[in-house]
Simulated scan of single mutants.
Amino acid sequence: MNEPTWSAVDAYIGDKLLGDDPALSAALAYNREQELPPIDVSPAQGKMLFLLAQMAGARHILEIGTLGGYSTIWLARALPDDGRVVTLEIDQRHADVARTNLEQAGLADKVDIRVGDAHDSLAAMVGEPPFDFVFIDADKQGNAAYVDAAIRLGRRGATIVVDNVVREGGILDPASDDPRIEGTRALFDMLAGDPRIDATAVQTVGVKKWDGFLLARLC
């Protein structure tokens, strides 16, 4: 099995279970047009987020790392009529692209885009209604701090998903000086034995190559 086969399987899954989605396709096309980095979740991963958020009965979702809003669209679609996504993005241009994509998808009224350093935004959110579901896909150096904030801002039983936690096996290299790998290893170290949260991680292959996601529930 190799990377072309991984991608072909993802395409098969998409054809059989996802089908064509004009709003999502348009969002990816606009992201490319605006020269955003092509690091969105895959369509199959987006549908997974949608289903996990629905299974969690989420009404209040936090996303850390908006980029062009592709994953935000999936999450906003999972909400009931009175639900809301708060999504944090450090780059104003990325936030502007996301806002356009959300407007085109008819979801702008469900999403609150907050621009700035996520650490500052999270610190300012203390006292807001607790979140039911948190998706983290931002700078990997901040993963441990972001999950710690999600624990403080989430309700008991809330779901937390963190993307890109395998790094093509890089997490096994304790000598790596890649800050993304160092940040991801720090996340695993933080969660090991933490009584506030019950977590696992799953390796994945596909159009996003070899990586994985962390899935956790607040105790």
Rank of each mutant, 00 (worst) to 15 (best):
P38E: 07
I61C: 11
Q45E: 15
A144R: 03
H119S: 01
D109V: 05
L51C: 10
L28Q: 07
E103F: 05
F131S: 11
P38M: 11
W74R: 00
E33F: 03
T66E: 04
A123P: 06
Q54E: 13
S25Y: 03
D148R: 14
A27R: 10
A105W: 11
A124H: 03
T159S: 14
D139I: 04
D137A: 13
G157Y: 11
T72K: 10
D132L: 09
R77Y: 06
K47R: 15
P22K: 08
A95D: 06
R93L: 00
T159V: 14
D120Y: 00
H60A: 12
L67Q: 01
R77P: 00
P38Y: 09
K110G: 09
D137Q: 09
I64W: 07
A138K: 09
D139S: 14
A26G: 15
D148K: 14
R99D: 15
K140N: 02
M48N: 13
A158K: 11
D120S: 10
Y70H: 07
V115I: 11
V97C: 08
R99H: 05
I151R: 03
S121L: 13
L107R: 10
L102Y: 00
V41K: 07
A145T: 02
A144W: 00
L88R: 08
G65W: 09
V85E: 07
V86F: 00
G127Y: 03
A98R: 04
V126T: 15
D91A: 02
A29F: 08
D21V: 14
N31E: 12
Q54H: 08
A144L: 05
G154M: 08
K140L: 01
R114T: 02
A44F: 05
D21Q: 15
R152N: 14
M125R: 09
L52R: 10
K47H: 15
P37L: 13
G83F: 01
Y146D: 00
Q141G: 13
A29S: 12
